[in-house]
């Protein structure tokens, strides 16, 4: 591993000063960055550790909104009573990700910025990868693409965004408050991640000196009747083959509002407005749920080895809708 300068910021002002002077990369829990440094995929010259910054490790439950500090750990958020009760899709997305060891380390802000698990990206220079080495090509396009995207891919990259938390956030129209040299501003989580296009190495709209401070999630009836349904190769501690973040507002069995977002199958967290619209106004039963599940994958573009996710994903969405409907009734 390449050596680096290591600093600790104890406040946002200190972080701002470091960023302005030397442009250090931000290090939070380290579960992605340190991992990729060991693989020599990330090679930062300077790291500034932000985990000592005070005031970013709280969860606040307002009447209409949950506010998560960016340095809250995944495990703390997953176990928080207000999160479990008011937005189960968020708690489930977190508790079904990684292992408890990693959830104790990884932060909610860092989690959003985790990088793909594409084996061609992670396994180094033996394979071309436009994300790792821009312009070198994409080994996955003609390769083993079982884990690659059915949505949002380009001729440059079909790597899947691997996270769960961002998928749940997108389903609930969450936003992040970001601080950098451009000042403080707010970004929809849905616009945080970029499509790969011709520049798959540029993964988010954040500037290098910008840090996520808070994640804010509107919560109401919709968030309460929600679930994160994640299908994996093994039952626990695996990335999603396909996952569905679903939230419902039902009125006497009829769907007033629906949210459907997919994980494990797209190059970024993937909302499916057409399927949401297709469900609105209808009475929800298993047959309708499966029809909408199939609708969710109508625009899928499978490769050579990942076509099975269309049928699997339709069932996952259908199951998620039925779980969310159950929660709506029990509310």
């Amino acid at each position: 591993m390449q050596t680096f300068t290591y600093s600790r910021a104890r406040s946002i002002n200190e972080l701002r000063a470091v960023q302005a002077a030397t442009g250090d990369r931000i290090l939070a829990g380290g579960t992605t960055l340190y991992d990729l440094m060991k693989l020599r995929i990330e090679t930062p010259d300077r790291l500034v550790d932000v985990t000592g910054i005070a005031g970013l490790d709280e969860i606040i439950s307002h009447p209409d909104e949950l506010v998560f500090g960016a340095l809250v750990t995944m495990s703390d958020a997953a176990a928080h009573p207000a999160v479990l009760q008011r937005a189960p899709v968020l708690a489930e997305a977190l508790s079904k990700a990684a292992s408890q060891q990693l959830r104790n380390m990884a932060t909610l802000g860092g989690n959003l910025l985790q990088r793909t698990r594409c084996a061609y990206f992670r396994n180094g220079t033996e394979y071309p990868c436009n994300k790792r080495t821009p312009g070198s090509g994409c080994a996955a396009l003609e390769g083993l693409d079982r884990g690659h995207a059915l949505f949002g891919g380009s001729g440059s990259c079909i790597a899947v965004y691997p996270g769960d938390w961002a998928v749940a956030l997108v389903a609930l129209d969450a936003v992040v408050d970001v601080r950098g040299s451009r000042g403080t501003h707010t970004i929809d989580v849905a616009s945080l991640h970029r499509l790969p296009g011709d520049t798959p190495h540029v993964e988010t709209v954040l500037e290098p000196d910008e840090m996520i401070l808070n994640i804010r999630v509107p919560v109401g009836r919709l968030a309460q009747a929600s679930t994160y349904h994640k299908i994996r190769d093994r039952e626990s501690y695996a990335f999603a083959l396909v996952s569905a973040a679903v939230a419902l507002e039902l009125e006497e069995g009829f769907v007033r509002q629906a949210r459907i977002a997919l994980g494990g199958v797209a190059t970024r967290p993937w909302r499916v407005p057409a399927a949401e619209a297709g469900l609105t106004g209808r009475r929800l039963d298993r047959a309708t749920a499966l029809e909408v599940g199939r609708m969710t994958f109508a625009d899928a573009r499978p490769g050579r080895h990942n076509g099975f996710k269309i049928a699997l994903g339709a069932e996952a969405v259908a199951d998620a809708l039925m779980i969310a409907a159950q929660r709506s009734e029990n509310r």
Binding site: T3, Y6, R8, N13, A17, V18
Partner: peptide, 15 residues
């Protein structure tokens, strides 16, 4: 007093 924290370690150095 300065806003910027000093590096705890520089490349090639121990901390």
């Amino acid at each position: 007093a300065a806003a910027q924290p000093m590096p705890v370690a520089l490349p090639g150095m121990s901390l």
